[in-house]
């Protein structure tokens, strides 16, 4: 059997079984959700601990520590954990892997306030030109130049012309194609057919903030954003679109110091903001953006984003910012 890259012997300490530190807990369960969202995470985190071979009593103790709850919250944690272990005993479980996130509550008033404060697409263009020094020809940046700017030749990347692509290959392999639309921003550990899986991601090097702020969905039905966009349009008789609100949020993100590496205009309704995760700030920075219109699917490390391709035969996708 061919020995896979990176597979090596290691030493296991059999006595370290019960010494989970706070850091270990964070590593196992991820960053603790913000206050006010923690209760909804109890079942998900309890399943993760059950799968790590902790029993129900241990799970309650560890969750009390993880959520930093005082003892008055113990009964509710015990109740929820008991339900999880009862479900596991039955053998049929919903969302066992814990990928389900609590529902996002969108703060429409906040987005309107950001628009009133920062402005829309015109103001974003002005900021990128004058404050960031983006030349006009940035919009002609090719897919090849974009990839070379962000990745090394040995990086294993997944690109595709369709949202169902799964093929992974080294960076330069992709230069031969002219109809690429999608890119997984994080490089992979290995390559083989159909290896676009979250577990095959090397590490979260980037994350993508893609906005759901549109008036109509793909079936031309009004979205939850339609009332706000239509009201803004009526109030000052300008051509308001979801993109204006997206631009306002992006200006706010610049103001907040988000590590923005690139912005791609999908050519249709959305702007895609690629952020660097070099300081491992993902959880701290991503979650607050959900309430102002960012697509929660960006949490997944193997999620596709729109890739720069200004010469796409049907749908040019242009870079408007690159750092």
């Amino acid at each position: 059997m061919k020995k896979p890259k990176g597979l090596s012997s290691f030493t296991l300490d059999l006595s370290s079984d019960d010494l989970l530190t706070s850091d270990d807990l964070t590593e196992l369960l991820g960053e603790c959700p913000p206050e006010g969202h923690r209760h909804a995470h109890i079942p998900v985190k309890a399943r993760m601990l059950a799968r790590a071979h902790y029993d129900d009593d241990e799970t309650v103790d560890l969750l009390m520590e993880y959520f930093d709850y005082d003892e008055s919250r113990r009964p509710e944690v015990e109740r929820d954990v008991a339900k999880v272990f009862s479900d596991l005993d039955s053998g049929y479980v919903e969302n066992f892997s814990g990928s389900k996130q609590p529902p996002v509550v969108i703060d429409f008033d906040r987005v309107e306030q950001l628009y009133r404060t920062y402005g829309g697409l015109y103001e974003l263009g002005d900021y990128l030109n004058n404050a960031c020094g983006m030349p006009d020809d940035i919009m002609q940046l090719s897919t090849k130049d974009y990839l070379c700017h962000l990745y090394q030749p040995d990086d294993l990347l997944c690109l595709s012309s369709s949202p169902y692509g799964t093929y992974v290959a080294k960076r330069d392999y992709w230069f031969q194609f002219h109809d690429l639309c999608f890119l997984v921003p994080n490089p992979f550990c290995w390559y083989r057919p159909r290896s676009r899986e979250k577990d095959n991601i090397e590490r979260r090097r980037f994350y993508n903030l893609e906005f759901d702020i549109t008036e109509l969905n793909e079936k031309d039905e009004p979205t939850v954003w339609a009332p706000l966009i239509q009201r803004l349009r009526l109030s000052d008789y300008t051509r308001h679109t979801g993109k204006n609100l997206q631009a306002a949020v992006i200006l706010y993100l610049f103001d907040q110091g988000y590590p923005i590496r690139s912005i791609t205009d999908s050519g249709n309704k959305s702007l895609h903001v690629l952020c660097s995760n070099s300081d491992l700030s993902f959880e701290r920075l991503f979650t607050p953006t959900l309430s102002i219109g960012v697509d929660p699917h960006g949490r997944c490390e193997s999620q596709f984003m729109r890739v720069v391709n200004p010469t796409h035969p049907e749908r040019p996708q242009r870079c408007i910012y690159l750092s």
Partner: peptide
């Protein structure tokens, strides 16, 4: 192979 995953590995 991390401490948090060692219990499952031992099982």
């Amino acid at each position: 192979k991390t401490p948090s995953g060692s219990r499952k590995l031992k099982h």
